[in-house]
Computed example of a mutant assay.
Amino acid sequence: MDDNALLERVRAKLADLPEGQTHSDIASIVRQETAGVVSDVRMLDLLRRVREESVGAGILDRLLRGAGVSDVLVAAPDRVWVDRGEGLALTDVVFSGEEEVRSLAVRLAGRCGRRLDDAQPWADGHIPGGIAGRGVRVHAVLSPPSGTGTQISLRVLRPARRGLEDLERAGLFPAEVHAVLADIVRAQLSFIVAGGTGAGKTTLLAAMLSQVPEEQRILCIEDTPELEPEHPHVVKLVTRAANLEGAGAIGQQELVRQALRMRPDRIVVGEIRGGEVVDLLAALNTGHRGGAGTIHANRAGDVVARFEALGLIGGLDREALHSQLASAVQVVLVVQRSSGVRRLAEIGVIVGVPPRIVTAWSVEGGAGEGWPLLQDLLRG
């Protein structure tokens, strides 16, 4: 009997066992199914595979445990990719077939409390600390609608708790910029960290929040808990997806409203991606200085357009969005990743109505025309 067929029979018997089964229970079932003819080496391998399938990510476990791994992507049974910070690389991991990939996708979705089947062929969720000792964000799409088989995307959620000193040593920005970033927080300027996927937005945001005075209360609103600033008074509000009946969803927009009633000194949105932008801008315009968040935009010049698009989702027209944004946010920080290297590429100042972003500092040119404007803001 090949191992895959044996595992199927072991799984079927395990399903009938009460919770809390031990390795000896599993080993006994394996021996029954093989008439006792199984080597110690094969037994250990089967026990490992059963354990991984029960509590881990199956054959993807070792990839998720790898040093520096941020993403694991399954594009086909024999096409498993990993990102270690230097772009995607094909691995030697191979599934037995589409059925095994689909089975893993369904199980991971179930661990997130999500439904994944032909009637609901995609799922998005979060497993807190349950794989490789770290939280993992899970997204899966079945076929159809995927035209190339079941797709699994796993993002390793490493807590963002490095300080500005750590990021300076890592080369994200030079020493003279370190002082400017600390001053932005000290002056309670509201700022947005912009960049592409994996550029280091959350890492920089958490480092800057670590500079907030200890007597101030920070309210962090996130889809998945990643922000871990070194600060004694951080309150986290995390969104919740709908349950299997389609009820109970809690979005970022509602959490921003709740945060306003919790006596915040600083309101932070881990990733601004929808209608919550309206409530956030309103909060920043009504006395809650020093707020922050991240947004997907590859260049400083794209940030205003991105806010316009999100404002429309929240029912805020372009003109109203412009007036709110110009008075609510003062600074934009743009981070980029190129050839695996992350860096703070630009610091911009938002001015005027309609708002535009004037470069105060860039990695290529140093101080720009917006530098005096930034200095005025820092002086208060």
Rank of each mutant, 00 (worst) to 15 (best):
R79P: 00
G87E: 12
G293A: 04
A170S: 11
A35W: 01
A170Y: 06
L167I: 11
V50W: 04
R186T: 11
E53D: 15
D265H: 13
A57I: 07
R343F: 09
V235K: 03
S24V: 12
E222K: 04
G275I: 02
T22Q: 03
G66Y: 00
V41C: 03
V50I: 14
G311L: 02
S153C: 14
L373Y: 06
S327P: 07
P77Y: 04
H139Q: 15
P264C: 12
V349R: 07
H178S: 14
A175S: 14
R9M: 12
D166Y: 01
E98Y: 02
P264M: 05
L157W: 02
L316S: 06
F173S: 05
I26H: 01
R266E: 01
E165G: 09
G315P: 09
G149R: 07
G68Q: 01
G293L: 00
S28N: 11
S24F: 01
N298M: 02
D265G: 10
A119R: 10
D2K: 15
A242L: 05
F95Q: 09
V180E: 04
R62D: 09
L181M: 13
Q252P: 02
E254H: 08
S327E: 10
R114W: 00
S327Y: 03
D117Y: 06
R137A: 14
D117L: 08
V303Q: 05
I192C: 09
N285W: 02
A132W: 09
G274T: 00
V256W: 00
V212W: 00
A15W: 00
A109L: 08
L47D: 11
H296D: 05
E8G: 14
A5R: 15
